[in-house]
Design a binder for these strands. Structure first.
Lengths: 152, 152
DNA sequence: CGAAGTGTGTCAGTCTTCTGACACAAAAGA
DNA sequence: TCTTTTGTGTCAGAAGACTGACACACTTCG
């Protein structure tokens, strides 16, 4: 039952733990964002635009970890609801910069506050040093995962 | 730009980092599972069954972090392909225990090996102590997130 | 004993996201 | 310069997951 050929110990596996934590975070965020009429991906999009106005659809997609096709339909919805504006014509090349509207900015403020409260709750059991350590480790894990399979 | 009213710093936010790591892990797993004809959720289901034979659909759903409805359609597919067997009649109550078939077990063995290699790669930059620390912190985060909003 | 509450399996419909494919623009290379 | 490569936006179809709802079985409690 330790770690033989009989599978990955779910209670110990960091991969499983990562998925579990991510799932718990997602659920908690959905809970507080629902009253605001936002999904997590929509919130991610607004947050990205708040910090880096003028981002293109593809850039937003990468930042929110979805495909550019998904981000596209999401942006159309946000535009229809008046949260964002996209240039009709590409100022340069084919890239369509996106901006927050005043409405979108107000919406984002509420969402940010709600999400921040979740993050505070999530970290309530951890000290400064532990938080820094987790951040460092997570960054290392991301870097290792993105390395092409060295295989040798 | 630090942490004022202008949003959550994406470069620093542990929530964002968690999502990033989880996304990278998902991508890597999909990559190695695809040749085996398995999605991540299907693999999760098989892995759970390998360690705890006889689990019900609802229990599998909780273990794989999806709804029991989603797990149900997934189980139908796995049964159709001959990877699992479900009792036709509930031995007790309404619960339908599920078991791996020999085919499912062979498939799981390959998948487990593939996923383990991903996990090894993910942790390649971390020492024993760091891995233990991350696990402890993640568990703490999950526990805090699941606590009902104490709000005060 | 009966009633409320919880857990389970299932059907139906919808929504979100993904994969595949195309045309086009900018950058990089020969 | 021309060509190849990369990045972007978009259309169409398919797969996966979710919400809502129902019936049924077991448990708990009055």
């Amino acid at each position: 039952m330790s770690q033989g050929a009989d599978g990955i110990d779910l209670e110990t596996s960091l991969g499983y733990l990562l998925k579990e934590a991510s799932s718990a975070l997602r659920t908690a965020m959905e809970e507080v964002l629902r009253p605001l009429g936002l999904t997590i991906t929509q919130y991610s999009c607004l947050e990205l635009l708040g910090q880096r106005p003028g981002l293109s659809g593809s850039e937003l997609a990468r930042g929110a970890f979805v495909t550019r096709q998904s981000m596209n339909v999401l942006l159309q919805a946000l535009e229809r609801e008046g949260h964002v504006t996209r240039s009709v014509e590409a100022p340069v090349g084919k890239v369509l910069p996106t901006q927050l509207t005043p409405l979108g900015r107000r919406c984002l403020e509420q969402a940010t506050a709600a999400v921040r409260s979740i993050e505070v709750r999530m970290l309530s059991g951890l000290g400064e040093a532990e938080q820094a350590a987790v951040a460092r480790s997570l960054r290392s894990m991301v870097a290792s995962l993105r390395q092409p399979d060295t295989h040798a």
